[in-house]
Structure formats: structure tokens, C-alpha cells
Design a binder for these strands. Sequence first.
DNA 1: TATTATTTTAACCATTTGGTTAATGATGCA
DNA 2: TGCATCATTAACCAAATGGTTAAAATAATA
Lengths: 178, 178
Amino acid sequence: MESLSNTEKQIIEAAKKIFFQKGLSGARMQDIADEAGINKALLHYYYRSKDKLFDMVFEDAMNEMFVDIKASQRKDVTLKEKITVVVNSYITVIGRNPYLPLFILHEVNQHPERMVQRMTGGANFPEIKSFIKDIQTGAKKGVIRKVDPLQLVISIISMSIFPFVARPMIQGNIRVGQ
Amino acid sequence: MESLSNTEKQIIEAAKKIFFQKGLSGARMQDIADEAGINKALLHYYYRSKDKLFDMVFEDAMNEMFVDIKASQRKDVTLKEKITVVVNSYITVIGRNPYLPLFILHEVNQHPERMVQRMTGGANFPEIKSFIKDIQTGAKKGVIRKVDPLQLVISIISMSIFPFVARPMIQGNIRVGQ
DNA sequence: TATTATTTTAACCATTTGGTTAATGATGCA
DNA sequence: TGCATCATTAACCAAATGGTTAAAATAATA
């Protein structure tokens, strides 16, 4: 991220746009070049291969998706505040970039190994385990009802993210039923 | 679906396997032919083009995803039973074929028009509108708390489907945090 | 069995696509 | 101003890929 040339930024922006929409296998280097308004060879000049370029974009996407979440894991925040932060964060981030979640989910499914790397390497990634512990102590204190902590986490994440992912289908459906 | 030859079935099965895993743009006709144990030209003999073949698979997928759901829309079932049927149906169907939801979501995002067709044409497709009405009358009768019906539907669907979609990420995450 | 229709294949073909190369433009610097 | 480095491009290449064709194998039919 340190001092990218103007062209480099254009390329990354273009690559994000195309990769987010079409995925790795659906994206064409020519499309990215066109979107960036440059020659295709220049893509390879800066980022050697399609895969390398995709890696950058993917790492960017992961960061974008989870930056704010990290904030919820500060120790000095109450459980309910943490939950609020998580939900708000997802809604804000995805609202800003609707392609993000489905892009990540699809690509993780295509190459699970690629994500495990980013997860161990990448700085900001939400730690579910710590969230679970918070819920457990919260339940003991009586702040929330006693539930399976993992299930609660999954439910919160599901309800925060899935509506965006399924939006085209739901909207389509409602429209079809008049 | 009426009396397909053995080869045709093999092709459909192979095509489903490959398309489900890799999506339209990621799938190779050669892969499908190999998976079916036949020559690539035979694919085109039965299903003219990759797109035509994909259309079959996609329609199949949509049906598979929503067959059972239709059952929940019978009039003589209570609201809570309906909800149970919906949740169980999704869990069963996706448990049987984990690739299904992400495949559909991804492809619908790639070509929204394709889905709208399937939705208007396809027989079994869950009608959210009718579900919403059930919830509204249920709320009036006091069977459930008064909530935004659409939000409830979306939450139910989210919690039923998303855990499967995000499974690799959640499992990966938990493993990484030891 | 002879012939016709159907199924299957090997060999091709045209296009697309990721990637390379060599030349041209620009930019800084001595 | 001349030279060297960096940025950019047009033209090209090889491999991959969807699709075709003509021939071979198989099944149906008379």
C-alpha cells in the first residue's frame, strides 16, 4: 500500500471492479486493462500474472471485509456493544461494496488453501474464538440468555451478511409474485 | 426429464458435478466429458452448447433447492409448522448437496436475467409473498410476536442457508485460532 | 442379412486468452 | 544536450477452449 504510482492504483481499482463482478475464472485481463484505460501488457509489467494480480485484489477484499470488525474485539467494550459493532460494521462495509461477500465466499470455495494463508497472514481478521468467550462470560453474568455461543455467532453473522448476498433473488422473487 | 438415455443421464450428472463446483466460467467442457467418461463431441451431440448444458443444470439446481419448500405453502398447516418445514427443507437439501446454494447465488449474480426466467417459468418456487401473509395473520392471532414480516422471512432463510455457505470460512477461522 | 438410423469417436478448426517481446515515448539527470 | 532508466504500447505467440466434421462403431429395421 505504500506510495503506489497512479497507474498502479488505476490497475488495482480496475482489477477489483472486474474480479469482484466476475470472479477469477470469469475475469479477462483485457477487461481489466480496458477498465483501467491502459494496454494489457502494462498489467503484466506491474503485476506479473493474472494470479498475482488476483492475489492482491483478494487480500484487499479480505481486509476491506474485516477491518472494522477488529474494533469490536477491544476488551473494554460490553458484549452488547460488541454485537452492535459487528452488525453495523458488516452492514456498512457491504453496503459500500455489495459484491464483496459473495466474491469472497465464492473464491474461498474455489481455493480454500488461498484463504487459510490470508487468514494466518493477514493482520485484521475477526477471531471467532474470542467472540465466543465473550458470549460465554456474558451468559454467565446473565447479560444474555444461555445459548450455544457458536450458534449465536453464526446466526448474527448470517443475518448481517446473507440478506445482501441473496438480495437479487429475494427482490426478484417479490417482484415476480407481483 | 422424460426417459433420458443412460448417456444423457451420465452427462447431466457430470455436468452438475463440474458446474456446481466451478461455476459456468470455471467449468471446462473437457472436464465434464472426462467426468462422464465420454468424448467431448458427444456433449455437443446431446446438448448443443456449453450454455445450453448449463441451462439444464441450472434449472435442475433451482428445482432441487426449492422442491420441498413448496410443501410448506399448503394452506392447512400452521405458521410454526410452516417455518419448521422451511428450515428443515433447506437443511436437508443443502446437507445433501453443499455446493447448491453458493452455486445458485453466484450464477444468479452473474446473470440475473437467467434466473428471473427460471423463476417465472419454473414450477416449484417458494412464494415469499404468501409466506409474509401467513406471518401477518399469525401475528394478528398472537401466535408470534409482532415483527416486520419480510425481515422475519429473510432472517429465517439467512440462518438456514448461510451457515452452509460460510462453512469453509468459519471452520478455517476456528481452526486458525487453534 | 442388407440397409438404414443412431451413437460415439478422433482429428480438426477458429477464437479466445494469458503472457511475451521488441520498439517507442517519456522522464530524470550528468 | 546526451544518456540512461522507467513507462507504455503494438504486434505477436503458444496454449487452452468451445465447437465442428467426417468417419467408425453400434443398434434398429426391413
